[in-house]
Design a protein around this nucleic acid. Structure first.
Lengths: 247, 247
DNA sequence: GAGTGTCCGTGCGCTAACGTACATTTGCCA
DNA sequence: TGGCAAATGTACGTTAGCGCACGGACACTC
């Protein structure tokens, strides 16, 4: 519609929502790169040379305490961008960005990115909107961490990841999930076992298959739907497919 | 310094950091209003007619579940603004904003505010910076809610409030604190009792007096300092007094 | 095909916080 | 000044999750 990129092969929703002439200014500087599992895109307080628009990869935003314990407060996939501190003005953040599902991303050097952002056109507007979506995600994570149990939060984690993939198979160990949820590995083990017993998922040494998405949605806390609805609302007017999921 | 408002009586730090000519454009539309304890500035998904720059009031950003349970994910005082959805583009959020310490705020009608924001000048830049600070606060709250106990979180709550007041006396009941921390009132009761026993605070029917701020800082988790340091860093280059606290 | 490391299951004692119930205190107002 | 409602203290059984310590199973390599 109206010169947007839906027809082009731009599997990142933010990029896809840009008008053609904006996208074409960026395109020469965009570079598709593979992101392997566990790769750190930036460390806490680290400088960013690139921003990343994930296409098939999924990235976790984490905080790690001095003790080594930590938790995830946000997740970015083909719906977003990694590196918002670059345009918010702070340049860096106290958090880390770690790849939690291997795949690709479009990479853009910070100075090229800033040039376009400072035109305060469509990219600017879209990114502020996305930042609000991320803010909602983070604030809901704060509430969820306080009020809901491991099983509910595991469901949320699985659904969030599933939304950002084209496959029903997630590649993540219980150990990795535990660091994201901020719980023990054993806690994930028993919760996952219950979900498998109920026929919702099947897992085996780091391979998790979603068998019954509706069943997961029935068990998850309302936090999942709140964030999902809010994101859909925020981007409803943009030319973006409303459901980024694998369906 | 360079025509900023530090000399003027503008007790909101964001407004104070604006260059004089920007402030003077806004000034005719700014209106000081009293905010009484418990007043709701906006409901979840509600529309905003005004943005608020608190001066002596403190406002909590809360999410309330369908069950009625809820938790705070952010706090705004003289360091910030209530209503960021107005300029981020989403117009509203799933959260509520409730006054948790009575006081005043400068109120500005949304359309006047948007006019100035869209000039993409100093106000624009400052607000993006502030939004990043709020993002840090929320994400750290997510981690803190997951990893730290009631006493540590109570200390954090007290310090955050104290930072935004000019007095050592906070007016908040244990019931109110409980809803902010997302715990039982009884949990706050025992934690507060311990802090009083250690001589850090004194309280009496909704009046809490900070007796030993350093003692609170020694007991609080690192989350408090992380957010504080990050805010100081973000606003270091702005002409803002780095420590907004009552000292 | 033996060895090794990763991944997952399980059990047990422990603690923080919960839900609930009730007592007590204190400020306020009629 | 008596009563009432709000604010706080305390106690007790219950539970979710922790820390720790294993043991088993699978995959990969040499």
């Amino acid at each position: 519609m109206q010169g947007r990129n839906l027809d082009r092969a731009v599997p990142n929703r933010l990029l896809a929502a840009l008008p053609a002439h904006v996208y074409e200014r960026l395109a020469p500087h965009l570079q598709e790169v593979p992101l392997s599992l566990g790769k750190v895109l930036y460390e806490a307080h680290g400088t960013l040379d690139y921003v990343y628009f994930p296409t098939t990869a999924i990235v976790s935003l984490l905080y790690t305490m001095e003790s080594g314990a930590g938790a995830e407060m946000g997740i970015v996939g083909c719906d977003g961008i990694v590196g918002i501190a670059v345009f918010m003005g702070g340049d860096t953040t106290p958090n880390r960005a770690v790849v939690h599902s291997a795949g690709n991303a479009m990479r853009l050097a910070v100075h090229h990115f800033r040039d376009e952002f400072r035109r305060t056109g469509d990219l600017h507007r879209l990114l502020l909107l996305y930042t609000q979506a991320l803010l909602t995600q983070m604030s809901q994570t704060a509430v969820c961490n306080r009020l809901h149990n491991v099983e509910q939060r595991l469901c949320r984690c699985l659904l969030l990841s599933h939304d950002r993939l084209r496959s029903n198979e997630l590649l993540m160990t219980q150990e990795l999930i535990a660091t994201m949820l901020g719980v023990r590995r054993e806690g994930v083990s028993v919760a996952a076992h219950r979900l498998q017993g109920a026929g919702l998922i099947r897992y085996n040494r780091g391979h998790i298959t979603i068998l019954d998405r509706a069943g997961l949605e029935a068990r998850v806390c309302e936090c999942y739907a709140v964030v999902k609805r809010e994101c859909d609302r925020l981007f409803a007017r943009e030319s973006i497919a409303p459901a980024p999921g694998p369906e």
